[in-house]
C-alpha cells in the first residue's frame, strides 16, 4: 500500500476584477452615507424624536392589523376561489372567474375608494328576498366603518391574486398523488386537504410571502379613506409641523423594519414546507452563524477542509 497521495495545495485563482468592483462600491457607499448623514435637511434629530411617537405607534398597530386580517381574508378567499375555479361545477368555476376578473382587473386604490363610498351607493344594507321584502336592514356606514371598508378593499383584492397563486400550486401537484389517494378510498375533500394542498404549499408559500410584504406596503393606500394607519399618522403630524422629510423617513424606517421581519419569517415557513422535497434541510441562519463561529475558532485550514453542506445542515427524520 502506497497510502493516500498528498492533499493538493494550489495557488487559488486571483480575481482582480472583484477587487476593483469592491473598491468602486465602497466609494459609492461612502458618498451615499455622506449625502444622507451630513445633509441637515434630513433632520435626523427630528426623526429620532418621532420614531416612537404615540400616534406613529398607534398607526403602526393599525397597519399591522390591516395587513394580518387582509392576508387572512386573502388566503382563505384565495383557497376557496381556487378550488371553485378547479371545480367540475361550471357555475362555481364561472363565479370564481368573474370575481377574479373584476377584482384583479381594477386598481386596488379605486376599489378602496368604492368601499369608502359604499354608504353613498347603498345607504341601507338589508337581508331579504331579492326584489322582495327585507327581513333586516342597517345603515351602511354603521355596518361598515372605515376600518372594515379598508379591510374589504384590501382583502377581496388580495383574494383574487391569491386564487391564482393557490391554483398554480394545486395544479403543480402530480396527478398520481390524487390517483393514489383515491385508490386508497380517500374522499375528494380528504385528498385535497391531506394530500394535494400540503404539497401545493411548497409552490404557494414563496409568492404568498411576497404578497404579505407587498400587502404591508399597500395598506398605506387606505390613507385615502382617512384611516389612521402608519403613513396617515405620519402625514397628519407633518401637516401640523411641516417636518415632511423626517416624518417620511420615520414611516419608511418602520416599513423597512417590518418587511425585514417578514422576510425572516418567510424563510422559516418555506423551510418547513420543504419537508420531504429535499434530502437534507438547508441550515437556518442561526445554525449558519454558529457554524461560522465554530469554524473561525478552529484553525483556518481545518475549517476549510470541513465538508460544507454537512455542517449545520439538519438531517431529516
Amino acid at each position: 500500500m502506497t497510502g493516500r497521495p498528498e492533499a493538493i495545495k494550489a495557488v487559488p485563482v486571483r480575481h482582480p476584477g472583484r477587487w476593483a468592483g469592491a473598491v468602486v462600491v465602497a466609494v459609492l457607499v461612502a458618498m451615499l452615507l455622506h449625502a444622507f448623514l451630513y445633509n441637515p435637511r434630513f433632520k435626523w434629530d427630528v426623526v429620532g424624536q418621532y420614531l416612537f411617537d404615540d400616534s406613529i405607534l398607534r398607526g403602526l398597530l393599525v397597519t399591522l392589523e390591516l395587513t394580518a386580517l387582509s392576508m387572512v381574508m386573502g388566503v382563505v378567499g384565495g383557497v376557496l376561489l381556487a378550488v371553485m375555479r378547479l371545480s367540475r361545477n361550471r357555475l362555481l368555476a364561472a363565479a370564481a372567474w368573474l370575481f377574479i376578473w373584476v377584482f384583479r382587473g381594477t386598481p386596488v386604490l379605486v376599489q378602496l375608494v368604492f368601499w369608502g363610498f359604499l354608504g353613498a351607493l347603498w345607504p341601507k344594507l338589508s337581508i331579504g328576498v331579492p326584489f322582495g321584502p327585507a327581513f333586516w336592514s342597517e345603515n351602511t356606514n354603521t355596518l361598515i366603518p372605515t376600518f372594515t371598508a379598508a379591510l374589504l378593499g384590501l382583502g377581496l383584492n388580495e383574494a383574487a391574486y391569491m386564487a391564482e397563486i393557490v391554483r398554480a400550486g394545486i395544479t403543480s401537484v402530480d396527478e398520481g398523488q390524487t390517483e393514489a389517494a383515491h385508490a386508497l378510498g380517500m374522499s375528494r375533500f380528504q385528498t385535497m386537504w391531506r394530500i394535494v394542498l400540503p404539497q401545493a404549499m411548497r409552490v404557494i408559500i414563496p409568492p404568498t410571502g411576497n404578497e404579505t410584504i407587498s400587502m404591508l406596503k399597500t395598506t398605506s393606500l387606505v390613507s385615502v379613506l382617512a384611516l389612521e394607519e402608519l403613513f396617515q399618522a405620519g402625514q397628519l403630524i407633518y401637516s401640523r409641523n411641516y417636518q415632511n422629510i423626517p416624518l417620511l423617513i420615520v414611516v419608511s424606517l418602520w416599513y423597512l423594519f417590518l418587511t425585514s421581519i417578514l422576510t425572516v419569517g418567510q424563510y422559516y415557513i418555506e423551510r418547513h414546507y420543504a419537508r420531504g422535497a429535499n434530502r437534507t434541510l438547508p441550515p437556518t441562519p442561526v445554525q449558519r452563524i454558529r457554524t461560522l463561529l465554530s469554524s473561525a475558532r478552529r484553525s483556518p485550514a481545518a475549517a476549510g477542509a470541513e465538508p460544507v453542506p454537512a455542517s449545520g445542515g439538519e438531517e431529516l427524520s
Binding site: 402530480d174 398520481g176 398523488q177 390517483e179 393514489a180 385508490a183 400540503p198 404539497q199 419537508r275 420531504g276
Partner: peptide
C-alpha cells in the same frame, strides 16, 4: 381494492 403504481406515487410530504 389496493393499487400499486408504476411511479410509486408515495406521498412525499
Amino acid at each position: 381494492i389496493g393499487m400499486v403504481f408504476q411511479r410509486f406515487n408515495l406521498f412525499p410530504h
